[in-house]
Design a protein around this nucleic acid. Structure first.
Lengths: 208, 208
DNA sequence: TGCAAAGTTGCAGTCACTGCAAAACCATCC
DNA sequence: GGATGGTTTTGCAGTGACTGCAACTTTGCA
């Protein structure tokens, strides 16, 4: 988990960031998102309030704790995909890779977040708003890959579909987590891939 | 514009609401969203700050000014569509109907909003977060229409696609408003309908 | 005209978030 | 080991969004 060329300083930063994220999620799950103040979160993470805001631009952001590198990383993956792969496939793969990583590193946090998001589904949407610039970045990568101008609808739409897929998958998963979150996201992206024009078959006990 | 059975009270309410919305958009477009305080908006609309918050739950909400009836209205339209129509078609039609109405009533406001949203694209996302419960309502309607259980992914995904389509269409339209916003939303929904798996043809000067 | 319901307002308070400047801290080089 | 310089942490003071409450005003209706 600790990188090779990482200085003490870097390690400390990573640890406080993680502590703040963890404190936010834990407290919010425990007593409800808006019955927790930033002051309490900071205290729990043993750090000043001002420091909290050095790490996260808002309380919302700390709850989701999205890795700031995730956007660029996905964009890079989209561009690095082998030549024969369609833009859709490349994007789909990079989303799923990111999510699998995330769940492997912090499955326990997501289980807590689930409780919070069930009470306040709007928080997930708002958290995504924060990363509006990252959407732009990703859309550019898709556009480049697809050979379309930046102004074209398709890249933006594909990226937005990714967000939507994730969002819907989480709420679906929150209702019944007998399926892996990653699989639900995959299903959702597939639906977007093949089109929503007709209603998918519904098997008892199945997901799509 | 004024309803038949509308009392003086109701008319006044509609007028203050409209005034607040208008003031918010006008001032935000003029000098930037976060250089405008709620106090100034209230003053512009000739009303107290407290009253502002009786009408809108947040400054964000006032900027978009989504009609609180819109969600229920669309849900009703989805359920009322003729029997032969697919859920997708029914939903698509109800979204487009709503948007056409909105643009007919307040095209000028949308032109101003465009300027604000170009500076701060996150605001549109956040505004949609407010209407998370309405999404739920719409999703139920779609589920019912499609004969799927509430827990199924499809209805949620279709509704989320609607939001995404609108969001992307606005940003696309903000770049170049030589096409009607309604048409762009239509194009976006069609892309979702037929599927994103393959890249659409790109005609010079065309949209999709 | 008078009463009840609905809408408006001011006020006091909480809390998220920001800029700034001092203090504590870590890395580096002598 | 100690001086030096860049980074991070912190306190503090301030702004502004938002809420609950208790008067007060306006509208609907008998």
């Amino acid at each position: 988990m600790s990188q090779p060329g990482e200085s003490l300083r870097d390690r400390k930063k990573r640890r406080t960031r993680a502590a703040l994220e963890r404190a936010t999620v834990r407290l919010a799950a425990e007593r409800g998102y808006d019955h927790v103040t930033v002051e309490e979160i900071a205290a729990e993470a043993d750090v000043s309030v001002r420091t909290f805001f050095n790490y996260f631009a808002s309380k919302d952001e700390a709850l989701i704790g999205a890795d700031p590198e995730a956007g660029p990383r996905m964009a890079a993956r989209v561009l690095a995909a082998p030549a024969g792969v369609t833009p859709f496939q490349a994007y789909r793969d990079s989303v799923l890779a990111e999510i699998t990583d995330e769940l492997n590193n912090a499955r326990d946090l997501w289980l807590l977040r689930k409780d919070v998001l069930m009470q306040r589904p709007d928080l997930l949407v708002r958290a995504f708003a924060t990363s509006a610039e990252h959407e732009q970045l990703l859309a550019s990568a898709v556009a480049q890959r697809a050979g379309l101008p930046e102004s074209h609808l398709y890249p933006r739409l594909l990226v937005a579909a990714g967000s939507a897929a994730f969002r819907c998958a989480v709420t679906r998963w929150a209702l019944d987590d007998s399926v892996a979150l990653g699989d639900v996201v995959g299903d959702a992206l597939d639906l977007f891939g093949t089109g929503l024009a007709h209603v998918p078959q519904h098997h008892e006990g199945g997901t799509s």
